[in-house]
Every structure is written in structure tokens, then in C-alpha cells.
Design a protein around this nucleic acid. Sequence first.
DNA 1: CCTTGCCTCATGTGTAGACATAACGTTATC
DNA 2: GATAACGTTATGTCTACACATGAGGCAAGG
Lengths: 244, 244
Amino acid sequence: MDREGKTVSDAAESGEKISFRDVRAEILRRITIGPWGPGTLLPGEVELAQEFGCSRTTINRAMREISDLGLVDRRRKAGTRVRTTPLRAARFEMPIVRAEIERTGASYRYALVQRGVEPAPDWLRAQMNLTPKDRVLHVVCVHYAGGAAFQLEDRWINLAALPQAEAEEFSRTGPNEWLIATVPFSEVEVSFTATGADALVAAHLDHQPGDPVFIVERATWWQGAAITFVRMSYRKGYRMTTRY
Amino acid sequence: MDREGKTVSDAAESGEKISFRDVRAEILRRITIGPWGPGTLLPGEVELAQEFGCSRTTINRAMREISDLGLVDRRRKAGTRVRTTPLRAARFEMPIVRAEIERTGASYRYALVQRGVEPAPDWLRAQMNLTPKDRVLHVVCVHYAGGAAFQLEDRWINLAALPQAEAEEFSRTGPNEWLIATVPFSEVEVSFTATGADALVAAHLDHQPGDPVFIVERATWWQGAAITFVRMSYRKGYRMTTRY
DNA sequence: CCTTGCCTCATGTGTAGACATAACGTTATC
DNA sequence: GATAACGTTATGTCTACACATGAGGCAAGG
């Protein structure tokens, strides 16, 4: 956060305009080290605007961003209160695999492993909220980085919601890229976990069965209808990292 | 996203004020399904304000939020362009373990496993950018949910940056909560991965050595100085989930 | 032709003011 | 006394306007 090099008093002294950044930094300071510990009810926006010598709009923007960070709760009339359990939210950017691989300078290669239309298995019906008669397209493919397997993609596409998927071969590019270019989505659920490699994963990612594998699963909906569910297994040693 | 139940034309017809939500929804629609595919240069804010019949400020807020989502690039003079590879950013809320456990209704219990001041091992010196003479406090503890081990916390605190940590026992509450209440932080790096359980993890999380374990590592800095590094190992079957 | 420098324009951010909305707390009514 | 109505108040959002900032592009000069 605190990348802004000047303090509020600096800005005030020099007669410069107060930026919402200055306000944000100062309020963050007061919450983290200053007098506004967990549970504190902060002064109202009008009062703060007076104190900082800026308009309420500026205070509002600073407060809104701090609220977005998860450090305070804001309610009309009730005011702004510092959360007792600050839940710093981290942002994870999830690029498509191809971009992630090419960004590292490695060459990207794609290989289709399996493709077929199947009745949805029970766990998938539960996960995607499908009816028993819904058909799904099941695609398994591998993304390689510099010659070595990087990620195994195990994807299910709801043909009731996306019938045109049945005409796609996915022999040269992955369903990932096709989907991004083709369908919008309104809601996404992502989860991370670790499991032991099964036979499929072991075979394609060069693992021993049972080896720990980092898993990302993502379910996507559009206007209430399930579009696709994907389970991505990463090669050994993969780390997903973010800074904030 | 599309939770707003009315369209822009609805709002315009009824003579209601256009909300930045309406604008955001409509622009998202045009980007995902409408005519503004990847690479499109969007109209300027002034033009959009005219089209939507609202002020430029409202357009600006809508655009800023869409930009925060990672769907467009905005540059002064250059204008707003739809990204070719939309990198939808996901937000992960990371509450402290205690809150995470109690939220599920399970009872929380804490146990200290080990505590001592040690010279920093090489990998940690590299990770936290420490000098050879820096001393670190090493704390290992376990967080239980409803009687079963939930998370093993393996933490290192830089005593050069935080000497008062040496006086803490951490016998009743974890270093996690103490740190949150005590020190601010300016920068955080989080990473997720999967590894096989080592002896320590196996012993305290009821695993077999080599069992897949979901790992979260977090390094925290304050004004350039490393504060703490923590490696959290989760019990079998743990999933970290988020919707957006 | 290439470079340098200015002009212009799109976004970034600030101000003051107004009305909307939600919720707390009090008052009035049954 | 319980409940319903209402006024007060803090945040939410929109407007209109102004100036700042950064970058693309044109033009003058070498």
C-alpha cells in the first residue's frame, strides 16, 4: 500500500490538494498502527472532510477503497466501523494457460487427449446443477511449456447451454480459448486444493500415482445456467503467487 | 454480475436516473456478448455520457470498476481498449484461521508445538532478504477445528524488525493473532502450492508422510523490511473457495 | 529522413452541492 | 407495554464543472 511518499501533514503544509490516496494512506495508518484499533467507530465523512481539509467526495472514495479491502464495515446511519477480524482480500489474476506459459518465455504446445459426448456423472450433475437428461462434452487435454507438461485440463461443457460446442474439435487449440472467445459468463466459482495424482494425471504430467498435485477447479455460469466445469491439475512444484 | 434487474433502456424510458451500475452492466454486456469484442477501442467517456444520458463521472466510475475487473485497459489519451486476453481477477478473502473455523460453527482450539530463537536458515534468508546475523523467532503451532487438526502453522518472525516478539510466549494464542493486532504491513506475497507431507506435518495433521497437502505461504513486509514468513499446511481435503 | 518540441485530447482526480436510502432511536398510538 | 410511525443522520450516488497528467500525433527545424 503505502507507496505514496508524502504524509498528510506534508501535503497540508505545502498547501497542495489532498488526494484520496493521502487520505487512504492516513486512515490505513490509523487503523493498523494508529489509534483506530479493531471495533472502533470512525468519525463520519463530514467530520473527516473537515479534518483533512478536503471534500466529502474524496473521503468517500478513500473509505470505499478501504472497505473494498475488507478492513472496515460501512452501514448507512450506523457509520464506519473497523472490523474485528480484518479479512484482507487478495486479488488473484487468472490468465489463460497459454498466456501464463508464454509470459515466462517458454514455448507453448497443446495436445488433445480425449474428447467425447457423455452423460453427466453424478458428481458433475450435483456440481453444475444439471438434469439427468443433460448431455455434456468431456474434453481432456494437456498444455506444455517448453516441451514439458505443464497443466492437465479436464473439462466438461454443458451442451444444453452451449450446443455449438459439439461442433468443435479442439484438436489444435484448447476449449479454454474457444470458450473465452465464444461465451460470456456472469458467475464463477473457483476453488483450490491438493490431491494425490490419479492414473490420468500421473500419465500425462509425468508423476507417480499418489504424488501431490495442485488443483484448481472452476465452475462457470451464465444467467443461472451452468456453462462449464474445469479441473486443472498442475505439474509438480507449481506455485501460484500474488503480491499486494 | 448481471444482478441489476433493469436494462439501460428501461431506466432511460422511465426517466429514472442512470446509475453507474446500469452503465457497468450495459458495458459489460457489450464487451461479453455485444459488439465490443477483444481489441475494440471503446468510445470516450464524454461520448458515452451523452449516449447514456448521464454525467461523465458516472461513466468514469463504471469504467474504473470494469478496469479493476481486468477486462479493459485504460490509458490517457489512448482511450479504453478491451483486453485481448481478459484476465478476470478473483478476490480471495483470507480471514485468520480462528475466524474461518468459528464461522463454520466448529469450536476452535490452539496448541503450541515448538518455539525458539534460531539463526535463519539459508532458504529463509533468501526468502525474507535477511542478513546472516539476523535472528529469527521460529514458532510451530496447530489450529484445531472441532477436535481435529485443521492447520499447521510454521512461522518465522524477523527479530531485527520486531524485537518485541521475543517476549511473547504464544502459549495460549497463535502468533497470527498477535501479529495482526501488533504490526501493520505494507506488502504481502502469497503463494499456493501442493506438496507431500513431511514428518512434522504428518504427525500433527494426522497424515501419512507423502500425503498431498495444500500449502499457503505468506511473506509480509513493512516499509521494505521483512516482518514474517509463514507456511500453513491444511488438513486433507481442505478446499479454498471463492465466488465472483 | 530523423529528431525535437508543442498541441491536443482522453482519462484521472478534485470541488461543492443535491437528493436518495437505510437504519437507529424516539415518539405516538393502540 | 407492545407496536407502529416518523424524524434524524450517515452513507450512497449523481451532477456539473475544473484542472492535472500523460501520451499520441503533427509540425518545424536540423
